[in-house]
Amino acid sequence: MKAEAWMFVICTIFLVLVTPTYWFITAASEHGGDWTGTSALVMCTLLTAMVAAYLGFHANRMDPRPEDRKDGEIVDGAGELGFFPPYSWWPLWCALTLGVIVYAVAMMAYWLMIIGAVLGVLALCGWIFEYYRGEHAH
Rank of each mutant, 00 (worst) to 15 (best):
K2G: 03
A3F: 06
A3P: 01
A3Q: 02
A5T: 03
W6V: 04
W6M: 03
M7E: 14
F8R: 00
I10C: 04
I10Q: 14
I10L: 06
T12H: 04
I13K: 04
F14I: 13
F14E: 09
L15V: 06
T19W: 11
P20C: 13
P20Q: 11
T21L: 15
T21K: 11
T21F: 06
T21R: 07
T21N: 03
Y22D: 04
Y22P: 05
Y22C: 05
W23F: 07
F24V: 13
F24D: 06
T26K: 00
G33M: 02
D34K: 00
T36L: 07
G37N: 02
T38C: 13
S39Q: 09
L41D: 12
L41Y: 13
C44S: 14
C44F: 08
C44H: 06
T45M: 08
T45N: 08
T48E: 00
M50T: 14
M50I: 09
V51N: 01
A52Q: 11
A53I: 02
L55Y: 08
F57R: 06
F57T: 02
H58P: 02
A59M: 06
M62C: 12
D63N: 07
R65P: 05
R65C: 03
R65H: 08
G72A: 12
G72Q: 08
I74N: 10
I74E: 10
V75P: 03
D76V: 11
D76G: 13
D76E: 15
G82Q: 15
G82V: 14
F83G: 03
F84N: 08
P85R: 14
P86Q: 09
W90C: 08
C94M: 15
A95Y: 12
A95K: 08
L96Q: 10
T97L: 00
T97M: 06
V100G: 01
V100S: 00
A106Q: 04
A109M: 10
Y110R: 12
L112C: 04
M113Y: 06
I115R: 02
I115P: 02
V118S: 12
V118E: 04
V118A: 15
L119W: 12
G120H: 02
L122H: 04
L124K: 01
C125M: 04
C125T: 02
G126S: 05
I128Q: 10
I128L: 06
I128M: 02
F129Q: 10
E130W: 06
G134Q: 01
G134C: 05
E135N: 11
H138E: 07
H138G: 14
